[in-house]
Amino acid sequence: MTLTNVPKGHVATIVTHLEMLEAPILAETESSLSMIYWPNPDVDQYLALFRKVGEPWLWISRLLMNRNELEAILRQPTTEISLIRKGEHIVGFAELDFRETGQCEIAFFGLVPDMNGKGHGDWMMSQVLKKAWRDGIDRVWLHTCTQDSPRALPFYQRTGFRIFGQEIGTMEDPRLAGLFPETAGPHVPLLS
């Protein structure tokens, strides 16, 4: 085994890439939640929801992105974003990326912290996979990492995704950079 020191002020992560090469048979699941398409989301509203869902897991990719670049992604006809609602409250979102012919990447998939661990993920994934597996799609894929919920990787595998690769990396700790409070991501060591 080769060990590499993580520099102070940084976070190490293992990214796991998973794929599904045929549409699964989806069980009908019930939920008090609903999913609605979110056409042309406002960048500020999108970032507020991204932060609300992703802060516990230190999601930073979209927070670091140039505003014009993010807006271009959100306006792409190949980007589809759905809101997850509980009554009138928005409690999560899913973002699908159809830029590559024959493929759908589940770019983001998540619920706000107080909705996690309550069994809503099965319903949500079922809805997302129904949207992803459309005519002409022969691969659906996503990635997760060690900064995500410890339940994420087993959940994706249980829903039919298979691992096809892993990467190891480090990044500046977003808590020390002021993007999140130091209390965010308590499962990730803070090396200040």
Rank of each mutant, 00 (worst) to 15 (best):
E30I: 12
V128P: 00
W57S: 13
T183S: 15
E172C: 00
S32T: 15
S34E: 13
A27E: 09
A48R: 11
D135K: 13
L179G: 07
Q45E: 15
E28W: 00
F98H: 01
D122L: 15
P7E: 08
M35K: 07
P24T: 06
G178V: 04
G110D: 05
Y37Q: 13
R134P: 02
P113D: 07
S82T: 07
E28S: 11
S192L: 06
P154T: 04
F93P: 07
L179M: 15
W57P: 11
T159E: 12
M35N: 03
A132R: 04
E22N: 12
M35I: 14
T144H: 00
L26E: 02
M65E: 15
K118C: 11
R175A: 06
I81M: 11
A177Q: 12
Q147G: 12
E19S: 12
A184G: 12
V43D: 04
L74V: 04
F180Y: 15
M115A: 02
F50Q: 11
S192M: 08
L58Q: 02
R162N: 11
A72R: 08
T146N: 01
E88G: 15
F93I: 07
Q127A: 06
M125T: 00
G119H: 02
H120E: 04
T2A: 03
R51A: 12
F155K: 00
T4D: 08
W123C: 05
L111Y: 04
N40Y: 10
D114Y: 13
I60V: 11
R67S: 00
Q45K: 14
L83G: 02
E182K: 15
R67W: 02
R134D: 01
H17V: 11
N66V: 03
R139P: 02
W123Y: 08
S126C: 03
R75V: 03
L18W: 07
T78W: 06
K8L: 12
P41S: 00
C145N: 04
Y156E: 00
T144A: 00
H120R: 02
T170R: 13
L63H: 04
D148Y: 10
R134H: 05
L18F: 08
A48Q: 12
G160P: 06
T78L: 09
L83M: 01
P39D: 05
P189S: 14
K52N: 08
T101Y: 11
T2S: 04
D173F: 07
R151Y: 09
